[in-house]
Design a protein around this nucleic acid. Structure first.
Lengths: 155, 155
DNA sequence: CCCTGTCTTCAGAAATTTCTGAACGTTCGC
DNA sequence: GCGAACGTTCAGAAATTTCTGAAGACAGGG
């Protein structure tokens, strides 16, 4: 049997795991709530009640997950409150975004290569630059391959 | 011209960028020092002096980068102090390790799939699980492809 | 036009992370 | 063995991050 208690625990556990992977605590809890709900959409109030967190921190967390491209506003049919839901393609989007910092690292390393004269440091930096350049080129193809393999089934 | 000032600035800049990507501050500074040096190896004392940080925090930072597999002890030829240097393959190692949290996420999501009954939430979670499973399988091949492409040249 | 319900913003509090400085081991030369 | 140089550990201080609660803004119904 899989009761509702298990669902709540599993959601909390996933949230904590995401925190361990670097995500903000409240953003992770909000994301898990969206992942685990069978409702079409959730409002800030729903989340605040369900997570036992203040309206303020929920508001901030929603802004984060929306800005990350994982959650979007859902058309609210005659409702006064804002409704939100997970976006399709959320995971490939997230993975793509995790690679955004790589742009910055790449730029910083390239600058390093130019700043040092010939020598071991320069070779080391050039190798690092090449690796991140390679990654940046491969990730889109990786995601596309998954999308194709998964075919038309919806997230 | 590329003076030594540029080198120091570029190193600091890369360290800050790595912090932005989630790395600990002092560990990032230590790593940058190893990246940018033309010396064969550095000691804790070198780093402490060069970075203007206490011996204590340098000690902790070294432990981190060693544990991450980016830096290793270098055989110290008749020296009293411990010498360290960057490992070959440091970057592919780092990238592989960045995917360690994915194991945890995958496990947490799989647990979620079992905890919820049939419905939208279950489909969503199953999709997420499939995506991370796919990633976990593809990353080693990706790294291998880079190693092969780069051929025998050293890091 | 006001009133109610809802979300957002922001200053301050709480918790967590990160750094330092001092005390303690350890190792090597003498 | 003894002394000195280094590195490590750990308690506490400092800085940063994260949450809350209250005040304000906005929209729609009455």
């Amino acid at each position: 049997m899989t009761g509702e208690t298990d669902r709540g625990e599993a959601a909390e556990h996933l949230a904590l795991t995401l925190v361990g992977a670097g995500m903000q605590r409240m953003a992770a809890r909000v994301l898990a709530a969206f992942l685990f709900t069978d409702e079409d959409s959730l409002t800030a109030g729903d989340l605040s009640a369900q997570l036992g967190a203040s309206a303020g921190s929920v508001s901030g967390a929603i802004r984060m997950v929306v800005q990350m491209g994982l959650v979007e506003r859902a058309p609210a049919p005659g409702s006064r409150r804002e409704h939100y839901r997970m976006r399709d393609r959320a995971w490939t989007t997230l993975y793509g975004r995790q690679h955004a910092p790589i742009d910055d690292i790449l730029a910083a390393v390239a600058r390093g290569v130019e700043a040092v004269g010939p020598g071991p440091a320069r070779e080391r930096l050039a190798y690092m630059r090449d690796f991140y350049e390679f990654l940046l080129g491969e990730v889109p193809a990786l995601i596309e391959r998954f999308d194709r393999r998964r075919g038309g089934s919806r997230p």
